[in-house]
């Protein structure tokens, strides 16, 4: 296993290099001037100013030189400064990453727990009224866009009921670290977490249901029942572990979202996370920030795919990795 993991880790190096080169090229192929945002609304801009700014920001270098410079800085874990914010890239990314992790981990944990519970319920009570209601609700919820759902929740809980704030992350007037500030922060989290959690539930609940249904038809469960085990033990101890195997894949595939955040939800709720940062940095041609965010997401994708493979082996002893 160790050899397998080491080999897979080594394989990720050229993979990440290819990804970085590809993304760098794509970002540079995007239409529009790299200094676009800076040029907006400046009528006095002269050609010599354009040349000067291009030189200062290194945009006059050939693209491959710009890529090499950026890659070298990234390897040294110092990807340089954000042109838009005028701060070191990691100083901008780390607070956004922290915010996104809080938001998405809360949503993923909550969403997955509810989804697995609902999936079990649907499978065990297949073709019951509860199963039909859950199936219908899931399909309806699946077709609702996140931005619309977010706005509807804002209208209900913020505008109509006045219970929760519409957007942001804190009320700036409260003493940071105080009880009031903590509660206020939690209140700001409720709506975006709810929207993300609903999307998690929709995705995982259906998989959990079908996976468990398949397992429930297996002979070894009939044997377990014949031995006189209670239904709770049959499902909880024997069926669930095997039913979770395909669900693990789904969870692993969705995990990069934990790091990458959700651009739509973070924008609707003005939540200062990675998704919003990625969007604003791409729109602002702040490609050093955009590249670094995308690379962090790429690393997460590769890592979680590897982790999913390892967990497969742990969950299913029939799966053995050969180096």
């Amino acid at each position: 296993m160790l050899l397998y993991v080491t080999r897979r880790l080594l394989q990720t190096v050229p993979l990440l290099l290819v990804i970085s080169a590809l993304i760098f090229t794509l970002l540079h192929l995007m239409p529009g001037d790299l200094l676009f945002r800076m040029l907006e609304g400046i009528p006095n801009l002269r050609p010599q100013d354009l040349d000067r700014l291009r030189r200062i920001y290194g945009f006059d270098d050939p693209v491959y030189v710009q890529y090499a410079k950026w890659l070298w800085q990234l390897i040294q874990l110092n990807p340089g400064y954000s042109r838009e914010y005028g701060q070191p890239v990691f100083d901008i990314i780390l607070p956004a990453l922290k915010n996104t992790l809080i938001l998405t981990i809360a949503a993923v944990v909550l969403g997955k727990i509810i989804a697995i519970a609902l999936g079990i319920f649907s499978a065990v009570r297949q073709y019951s009224i509860g199963d039909y209601v859950l199936t219908a609700t899931t399909f309806i919820a699946y077709s609702v866009p996140a931005f619309w759902l977010g706005l509807m929740l804002i209208i209900l809980f913020s505008v109509k009921l006045g219970w929760l704030p519409t957007s942001g992350i804190v009320n700036g007037e409260l003493e940071p670290g105080s009880w009031a500030a903590t509660v206020d922060w939690l209140k700001h989290l409720i709506l975006p977490v709810a929207v993300l959690a609903i999307s998690e539930i929709i995705q995982v609940q259906r998989f959990m249901r079908s996976s468990l249904l398949e397992v429930l038809r297996q002979d070894y469960l009939t044997t377990a029942r014949a031995k006189g085990l209670s239904e709770r033990v049959v499902i909880g101890r024997h069926a669930l572990k095997n039913a979770l195997i395909p669900v693990v894949t789904i969870i692993a595939v969705t995990m990069p979202r934990v790091v990458g955040g959700s651009t739509v939800v973070e924008t609707v709720f003005a939540y200062p996370g990675m998704g919003r940062l990625l969007y604003t940095s791409i729109m602002g041609n702040d490609y050093v920030v955009a590249m670094t965010v995308v690379m962090i997401i790429a690393v997460t994708v590769v890592f979680f795919n590897l982790l999913a493979d390892v967990i497969y082996g742990w969950l299913d002893p029939r799966i053995r990795y050969q180096s």
Partner: peptide, 16 residues
């Protein structure tokens, strides 16, 4: 506060 979404801003005004 920076809120890019004009609909969220509208809701924030209505919510006081």
């Amino acid at each position: 506060k920076t809120v890019e979404d004009t609909n969220t801003n509208l809701a924030a005004v209505l919510a006081g």
